[in-house]
């Protein structure tokens, strides 16, 4: 599954998208699982107090289930103006 990165997550990870393959063999089955895996791989993400996730362009909760073809977006708040 593909993870699109926005705002500070793009800066932390250093690219604009990420495939779950880089997260190892564990297949995340929920948003919560996925976040835990990504945060383990990129610990700087742990410092974010609010990080929204969208699955196929729908705002998701930690319990939202994931399947192989889902497109995920990591959306942090942005302050600039």
């Amino acid at each position: 599954m593909e993870i699109l990165l926005f705002g500070i997550t793009r800066e932390i990870i250093g690219q604009s998208s990420l495939n779950t393959e880089v997260l190892g063999t564990d297949k995340p089955t929920t948003v919560k699982d996925l976040l835990a895996l990504i945060k383990e791989r990129f610990p700087a993400l742990k410092n974010l107090s609010s990080l929204s996730v969208a699955v196929n362009n729908d705002y998701a909760s930690p319990e939202t289930p994931l399947t192989e073809n889902d497109e995920i977006a990591l959306i942090p708040p942005v302050s600039g103006g």
Binding site: F6, G7, R10, I75, V78, G81
Partner: peptide, 9 residues
Amino acid sequence: AGLQGFEGQ
């Protein structure tokens, strides 16, 4: 609206 880098919300 908010901005970061080349992005906006």
